[in-house]
Design a protein around this nucleic acid. Structure first.
Lengths: 209, 209
DNA sequence: TTTTTTCTGTTGCATATGCAACAATTTTAT
DNA sequence: ATAAAATTGTTGCATATGCAACAGAAAAAA
């Protein structure tokens, strides 16, 4: 949005300036946090990738969110009275920054002027998050698996600027992300290949329409 | 979140303090804005209700978002390269506040100190919006119509604190909101009534489980 | 390396959901 | 008040999707 906003710089400041902020490292598949208690926690991915996961009562896994560098997540973004158990898992070795929402409104001991910047920069990160969520909703409101797949591929294609791109998910996880049955999705992918809409080599996709 | 934050007050300030901000009134069914151009517009509902609508190539209507007082919306929250035509329609007579994202970073002529507050308060509104979007995603990722209905009713029930509540939508629109076929949804609603899970009188629902 | 686990690719079958169509009812417009 | 338009309620039918199950490939662990 604002061309002058430098996420990397912001994160660098984050790391160094305020004592109310924690940074932790996680190995692949480690649990980063759970959304059970309401601690008003805000998290920012500094490196790596993490997924927000829900298992429902039928054992269906859904990837609610997939977060990469500079993405924000945390239970503060969820309504208190959700019935679901949500948890965040590191998909790669990851570095995550933690602070609580209250931090925004209270001064830290050092009285760092970092707080002044924090709020305004956070608005920027929140905005990005809203854009991501709207994209997700665009996908999920599509009526058919085919439409979901093609919409998602379209996004990935535009991000990479090319007609070819590598999926950030395994096919198993892609199905969970699009909230559809894996085998049904594989079937639809095969049809898309057979009908000449896409090419597919491993997890590399090429659009041919 | 922050108990001290007073949305009404914030909106009142918004209205009166800054010349970069526009307020417009819309009658029911009037188009509030479209998401075609990229003007980085941010809108806030001051009164009434508005819906963000998408029609896809098959003529399927989807209610992408339903916004009420103090909700934020606008094309700034959407990625630039979306293929869809989205537009916002007033569902009731509504009052909507408009400004551009740039407003946050430039001083207005009056040099109002309103800008200082604007950013930090906006963070609050953005946070609320993220919570709403996450709720929406919760619904949309549910695998069956029944689960979607019950999850949504559960939310409405908790909001009204009672087991009874009035739907904010017509049933036609509810189907569009849950992104399912209307007749299929009506069928599922009937089953839920027959099986004793809910009672249904007009657009008033009572949970009985 | 070898073993174990996870992922991919595929298919038959059951069914939930979408689609089309219509009458009855309610709401909105004239 | 009357006509027009939209919503609700319902059903038969077609099919897209979910489910279960399995073999082979790939990746991770030992």
């Amino acid at each position: 949005m604002d061309a002058n906003f430098d996420k990397e710089l912001f994160i660098e400041k984050f790391k160094n300036s305020c004592n109310r902020i924690q940074i932790k490292n996680f190995k692949k598949n480690e649990i980063v946090t759970t959304y059970i208690e309401k601690r008003n926690q805000i998290c920012i991915v500094l490196s790596g990738e993490v997924d927000l996961i829900r298992y429902d009562s039928n054992g269906n896994k859904t990837i609610i969110g997939h977060f990469v560098v500079s993405d924000v997540f945390g239970e503060v973004f969820y309504p208190a009275n959700t019935n679901n158990e949500l948890f965040v898992i590191a998909r790669k070795n990851s570095e995550v920054l933690f602070f609580t929402y209250d931090t925004l409104f209270t001064k830290c001991r050092r009285n760092c002027d970092f707080h002044k910047e924090l709020t305004s920069n956070l608005t920027e990160l929140f905005l990005d998050q809203i854009i991501n969520l709207n994209l997700r909703i665009e996908l999920l409101t599509k009526r058919t698996i085919r439409e979901k797949i093609l919409s998602y591929f379209d996004i990935l294609s535009k991000r990479s600027i090319r007609r070819s791109f590598t999926l950030p998910f395994s096919y198993t996880d892609l199905a969970d992300f699009l909230s559809v049955d894996r085998s049904a999705m594989m079937r639809e992918l095969k049809l898309l290949v057979d009908e000449g809409f896409i090419k597919k080599h491993g997890n590399r996709i090429t659009l041919t329409f």
